[in-house]
Design a protein around this nucleic acid. Structure first.
Length: 458
RNA sequence: GUGGCUAUAGCUCAGUUGGUUAGAGCGUCGGAUUGUGGUUCCGAAGGUCGAGGGUUCGAGCCCCUUUAGCCACCCCA
């Protein structure tokens, strides 16, 4: 053995290992997102983790520079790691739109990196699950974005959600009307904190940081504090925006989006017009979505998106408007964990076969393969240990069924199937029609049907 | 990035005003007449007290530095 000191095993701040139970959960959510996105015709793409620095620095400000992982590669090129999937999409679209044609619908599920501070559900390496429709300004694309969000959470088992919808045009119109258009960013940044710090402090910030008057701040807040049903709020918004073309157009668009989602079958209570949300200041120009879980609203938006006028303007002269949204996978998983919605399963194989009779290894292996060919996940224990220990192992990993086959069972061409959660056992006859000795293929055929039935039941 | 709190076994924690070989519960592993787990009983393994330095006769405990985590703020393209 080496005498050299051990290297402490550790991971970088904000970077994590995923143990099997956590990884299975991640993969499940990812698979669900893929399924929903694909069901709407969004196609998968991927782009490099590393891009030329100039591509990524294009639009951001100082914060971007600070948060982005940047370095010089071995060839002396300035490169950076992607910090979201939208900028790479812009570059990708500018480069390939001629081949892709419009409208272009893509989804992209991938890891991104930001060197920012960590907190609950926020890490330096995390995953985004984006879907976007580019090359069209049609309202149908706006509506469809909302539908995807809705269906995604439904598929994930969350029906108690609030998809908050707004339109930047409404806010912009209001600010124009108040003569605050030149300070929009500062005003909206303050407004976005409404739910968090309260009306007084928001008004203070608008006055101090953005130089608004008390009455201007009050007018902005009045807009965002309208109460009532979506339709009532919308009517009141239009009233307040009277005379401002941009704002009224934004309100009309919202009316279409809400109407479209309702017409497509989304229950009204899951969609909430919220004139205060103002995220994505840098590039959203139209409809905005933010999604909150009713059971855990404090964790923040778990799926955000919106419409942008010109995604790829830095990289091409071609106009590429679009709309999309992104599931915050890590934040959602954090929420699911807090809500106790994470199954404690550490194995993808629901069926467990103890290595019971030490002389029958080959029979176990053949039977397991036969079951797998019927689409079942099957694990065979590698050592002929005591049965109790093997069952304990299976239970701890979260296997659902144990197929118990000892010399007696081989003798009689049968087996016991034990449901581990309830401890109930079912005897299954595995003999060929007309009786006969043990036959792995016949046994697999008959057993697979029974196992599938039990798995479906439990 | 700023401020505060925390760091003792795999996990959750105890550890008296600094004083001998640092403890518990859970978990893990082994066993309780040899074909059935999650309950019980017995036993075992497992910690240079996050890391580095300092004060002291003596540091898990006090001081400094560092790393990581938690909370708040800033920010979130």
């Amino acid at each position: 053995m080496s005498e050299s000191p051990l290297i402490t095993p550790r991971t970088l701040k904000g970077f994590r290992d995923y143990l099997p139970a956590a990884m299975l959960q991640r993969e499940k959510v990812i698979a669900t997102a893929q399924r929903v996105y694909r069901s709407y015709g969004f196609s998968p793409i991927d782009t490099p983790a590393l891009e030329f620095e100039e591509i990524l620095l294009g639009k951001g400000g100082e914060e971007t520079d600070k948060q982005m992982y940047r370095f010089e590669d071995a060839g002396g090129r300035r490169v950076g790691m992607r910090f979201d999937l939208t900028v790479p999409l812009a570059r990708f679209a500018a480069q390939h739109i001629a081949d892709l044609g419009t409208p272009f619908k893509r989804y992209h599920i991938a890891t991104v990196w930001r060197g920012e501070n960590t907190s609950r559900g926020r890490y330096r390496e995390f995953m985004q699950c984006d879907f976007d429709t580019i090359g069209t300004t049609a309202v149908a694309a706006d509506i469809e974005t909302g539908l995807v969000i809705h269906d995604l959470f439904h598929a994930l088992g969350f029906d108690a959600i609030a998809i908050r919808v707004n339109n930047r045009q409404v806010l912009t119109g209001m600010l124009e009307k108040l003569g605050l258009a030149d300070r929009a960013t500062a005003i909206l940044r303050a407004l976005d904190k409404l739910g968090k710090i309260g009306r007084e402090k928001v008004a203070d910030e608008m006055m101090q940081v953005a130089g608004a008057t008390a009455s201007q701040a009050d007018d902005v807040l009045r807009l965002s504090e309208l109460k009532g049903s979506n339709h009532e709020v919308l009517a009141a918004v239009e009233n307040l925006l009277d005379g401002n073309e941009r704002g009224l157009a934004g309100a009309a668009r919202l009316r279409e989006v809400l109407g479209g989602m309702a017409a497509a079958g989304v229950p009204d209570e899951r969609v909430k017009l919220d004139v205060a949300i103002a995220r994505g200041l840098g590039y959203y120009t139209g409809v905005i979505f933010e999604t909150f879980l009713d059971e855990l609203p404090d964790i923040g938006s778990v799926c955000s998106g919106g419409r942008y006028d010109n995604l790829a303007e830095l990289y091409t002269k071609q106009q590429l408007p679009g709309i999309g949204a992104s599931l915050g996978l890590d934040r959602l998983l954090s929420a699911m964990e807090e809500l106790g919605r994470v199954a404690k399963v550490a194995t993808p194989a629901p069926v467990f076969i103890p290595f019971f009779d030490g002389a029958r290894l080959h029979d176990y292996l053949r039977l397991a393969r036969g079951l797998r060919s019927h689409g079942l996940g099957v694990e065979v224990y590698p050592e002929p240990k005591k049965l109790g220990q093997q069952l304990k192992y299976a239970d701890r990993r979260g296997c659902k069924l144990a197929v118990i086959l000892g010399s007696q069972e081989f003798e009689g061409a049968k087996c016991q199937v034990k449901v581990l959660a309830t401890s109930t056992t079912h005897e299954v006859d595995l003999a060929a029609p007309g009786g006969g000795a043990w036959n792995a293929e016949v046994a697999a055929e008959k057993l697979a049907a029974k196992l599938a039935e039990l798995l479906a039941a439990g």
